[in-house]
């Protein structure tokens, strides 16, 4: 299978997952890159994304899988696609891989926490997350469950980045079960409201397999 590694930044972070698929589809057509369609009654271009990214979140490690009809010249793909992609979506690499996305286990993320009262609770946040268990409410469409997220956090650091701004860097479980970056930060709000930030900016940095090797 063909794959691209791409970044989603700037104004493009507000493009939803469904809209991203449409955007990619059109970009491939604009670039004149032909990809295989699904079989069936209503064929559409086959495109598979690893770990759909939340709306408003930035990422440097998005992966998309597809199948080129004419397999020559994938090395030119990044340049060809980048010429026709909207601002903020940038293809970093094109390559081939047969590793299934389900083997992604961990991801590195950053969260910039903003406190309008100019607090700087970095140390307190690290202490908070070093607790032996962190049971939070996780809402799904059907029900609310209490879950201990501690096993889903491989590592976490917090540092004061600026006045009223804390940078949290963490490696968290990506899927089955996964922890979303907003869920991680919501633990603060749920368990210690004094640490609740006024605004958070999220960024996804890298994805890993179960052995903590970079996943491609």
């Amino acid at each position: 299978m063909n794959r691209i590694l791409f970044a989603k930044e700037g104004r493009a972070v507000y493009i939803s997952h469904l809209d991203l698929m449409r955007t990619m589809q059109r970009a491939f057509i604009r670039a004149g890159v032909k990809i295989r369609h699904t079989e069936g009654f209503n064929p559409h271009p086959y495109m598979n994304f690893a770990l759909p990214l939340g709306l408003g979140m930035e990422s440097r490690c998005e992966l998309m899988e597809f199948s080129l009809i004419e397999p020559d010249g994938p090395e030119e793909l990044p340049a060809r696609l980048n010429a026709v992609l909207p601002e903020g979506i940038r293809v970093l690499r094109a390559y081939e891989s047969d590793l299934k996305f389900k083997y992604i286990k961990w991801l590195d993320m950053e969260a910039h926490l903003f406190y309008y009262n100019e607090a700087h609770p970095a140390a307190a946040i690290e202490t908070f997350f070093s607790a032996p268990a962190l049971v939070i409410e996780k809402k799904t469409k059907r029900q609310t469950a209490n879950v201990d997220i501690k096993p889903l956090i491989a590592s976490l650091k917090a540092a004061d980045a600026a006045k009223g701004e804390v940078l949290v860097s963490a490696r968290i479980a990506a899927q089955d079960p996964g922890l979303s970056p907003p869920q991680l930060i919501s633990a603060l709000e749920q368990l210690d409201s004094a640490l609740k930030p006024d605004f958070v900016r999220f960024k996804r940095l890298e994805v890993f397999d179960k052995d903590m090797a970079v996943f491609r």
């Binding site: 493009a12 493009i15 955007t23 059109r26 709306l55 026709v84 909207p86």
Partner: peptide, 17 residues
């Protein structure tokens, strides 16, 4: 933007802008 419906309507940045 995170608090409104369909925020992509309010950002610009589309292809051929």
């Amino acid at each position: 933007l995170p608090q409104v419906q369909k925020p992509a309507r309010y950002t610009g940045g589309e292809y051929r802008e």
